[in-house]
Each structure stands twice: as structure tokens, then as C-alpha cells.
């Protein structure tokens, strides 16, 4: 592994971790437990700038470290299932969409992420009534996904200019 790649992974993991921890202290949006998913900006930047393998490493490290810092086993399960499903979706969709349509990729990632978390909640409480939240989660995923996607796009533009 090149030194530059290693440094980039370290910096981006750090950044994702800080964003995640700060975000977990913000008051919830609309429904309890809902977060904008700002650390997804880092995942998107990493996936486009470094590559899938590196982005996966960053995501895994971020989830593990964040759970050690602020979380519980439950929040770890939520992050892991949601995060990996969203990553898989975005990694696949990046083959189809051009790089300048990161926001669409991000929206799909956010929707899948929320469904993953709903699935975890459903399995943990063994009750399907939690799917009542599905319509709200789709709406918020589209809004937060667009936002994080555009933020990642702008960040990438800046990174490419300074290179």
C-alpha cells in the first residue's frame, strides 16, 4: 500500500469519525433517532477519489471506532447493516451513473441504509409494525441523501482542483 493512500485513509477515517460523533450529539430531526448521515459524505468522497476497497476500509474503521467511542452493541448493529448495505448499493450504482451524478447515487444509498436499519429494528424487536416508519424514512432519505451527495460532489471538485 502506498504511503499516500495510507495517509488518505487515515485522514478520511478521522474526518468521518469526527462528523459521526458530532452528529450523534445533534438533536434528532423529524422523528426520533433520525440523523442526516453526514459521514456518508466521506464514504462518497473516498469511493470516488480513492476507490472501493479503500472506501470500504474507511467505512469499517469508522463504524468500529464510532461504536467504541459513543455506541452500544445495538447501535453498532444498526450502523454496520445500514452502512454496508448502503456501501454495496453505492459501489454498484457508481458503475451506472457518471461521476457528476453522485447525488443520485447518494439518495439510493440513503434509502437502502434506512431500510437496512428498519430491518435491524424489525429483527431485534421481532415485530413488523416498525415498518410504519417506512414512508417517512424514504422521504427523509431522499432529502438527506441529496444533501450529502451534493456536499460530496462539491468536496470532490475542490479536491480535484487543488491536486
Amino acid at each position: 500500500m502506498k504511503l499516500k493512500t495510507l495517509t488518505s485513509i487515515a485522514i478520511l477515517t478521522c474526518l468521518a469519525l469526527v462528523i459521526f460523533v458530532v452528529e450523534s450529539h445533534l438533536p434528532p430531526l423529524v422523528i426520533p433517532g433520525l440523523k442526516p448521515g453526514l459521514s456518508n459524505v466521506v464514504t462518497l468522497v473516498a469511493i470516488s477519489y480513492l476507490g472501493r476497497k479503500e472506501a470500504f476500509t474507511i467505512l469499517t474503521l469508522r463504524i468500529l471506532l464510532a461504536s467504541l467511542l459513543t455506541g452500544t452493541f445495538i447501535s453498532f448493529m444498526f450502523s454496520l447493516v445500514g452502512g454496508y448495505l448502503a456501501f454495496l448499493t453505492m459501489a454498484l450504482l457508481l458503475n451506472i451513473f457518471k461521476e457528476n451524478q453522485l447525488w443520485v447515487v447518494s439518495v439510493f444509498g440513503a434509502i437502502v441504509h434506512n431500510f437496512g436499519q428498519l430491518l435491524v429494528a424489525c429483527v431485534l424487536v421481532e415485530n413488523v409494525s416498525v415498518f410504519y416508519y417506512a414512508p417517512i424514512l424514504i422521504i427523509t432519505a431522499i432529502i438527506t441523501g441529496s444533501f450529502t451527495g451534493i456536499a460530496a460532489q462539491k468536496s470532490l471538485d475542490i479536491i480535484k482542483k487543488t491536486k
Binding site: 434528532p28 426520533p32 433517532g33 452500544t72 445495538i74 447501535s75 429494528a121 431485534l124 424487536v125 421481532e126 415485530n127 409494525s129 416498525v130 410504519y132 416508519y133
Partner: peptide, 28 residues
């Protein structure tokens, strides 16, 4: 630890269940 169940507030209809995932509690 997360107190999400408390922030769900008051419920009086059958649409939304009160859920506490860590304690595996659902109130329908």
C-alpha cells in the same frame, strides 16, 4: 442508552407503535 423510546412522545392511535429497541419492547 439512547432514550429514543422516550422521545417518541405520547401515542394514542394504532398507526405508530412505541418502540424501545435495546429493551426489545414494542407497545402497540
Amino acid at each position: 442508552e439512547n432514550k429514543v423510546c422516550i422521545s417518541q412522545g405520547e401515542v394514542h392511535t394504532s398507526t405508530a407503535p412505541l418502540v424501545c429497541v435495546p429493551n426489545k419492547l414494542v407497545i402497540q
